[in-house]
Amino acid sequence: MSTAGSASAPGSASAPGSEDVPGADVSGPEDAPVIELSGLARRFPGPPPVTALQPTDLVVRRNDYLAITGPSGSGKSTLLHLLGLLDTPSAGRYLLDGIDTGPLSDPDRAALRGRRIGFVFQAFHLLPHRTALENVQLALTYHQVPRAERRPRALAALERLGLAHRTDALPTTLSGGERQRVAIARALVNRPGLLLCDEPTGDLDSANARAVLDEFDVLHAQGLTLLVITHDPTVAGRAGRHVAMRDGRLTAEVTR
């Protein structure tokens, strides 16, 4: 299990708080940076004003499996929302797949978000009136995927997460583990390169959590880049890289 993390290049996160662009970021196309942050910060104007994310540098390379841990209120979700283009930074630069996301228009950000990033939330965020299949298909609605292709693709994604028998179930009739697997299927159906997970196992019991983490290992082995926010040390332990966060700062990379 722990071997999954070995494929990544450890130590590529630059020194936290530094204003400089990280130095050792040029490698082969294999470990091209997916995420490249320089001085990225987020300050909520308040009142009272809160600097949820201090200027941060971070590089996440292709096929990295990065866990971010930290106490509540340390700014983990803030960082994840910025990385997912759901929020805009108040300072700094964010390159996603080499594209500077700063000057992008709303449609461009939405396109990047929808096509290249998959989200997995603690609260699942499944539409309660739609079946599992319809919830997964929803991710294909905005990206000019021909209607005829949507159903087979969503079915394949559900099947892959072991939910072939629950495709027509409403979320209310699914267990927590099943719901999270539907959400993961939805996050993957667009074949994104980056999966952003905010407490993906937070609402799951240990057995279901383990199943989700096993799935992450498989995805990582297939080349996906994963970034997982968690409170849980066992979850962080499954990742190849582990960064701690405190008071809006990324602290030193935790090495094992």
């Binding site: 709303d106 939405a110 978000r113 989200f119 965020h125 991710a139 609605t141 905005y142 667009n190």
Partner: peptide
């Protein structure tokens, strides 16, 4: 919540 989710799935403000 649904609106937020749709945005996360790639919907723009216009959609």
């Amino acid at each position: 919540e649904e609106i937020g989710l749709r945005r996360a799935l790639g919907a723009g403000t216009r959609q």
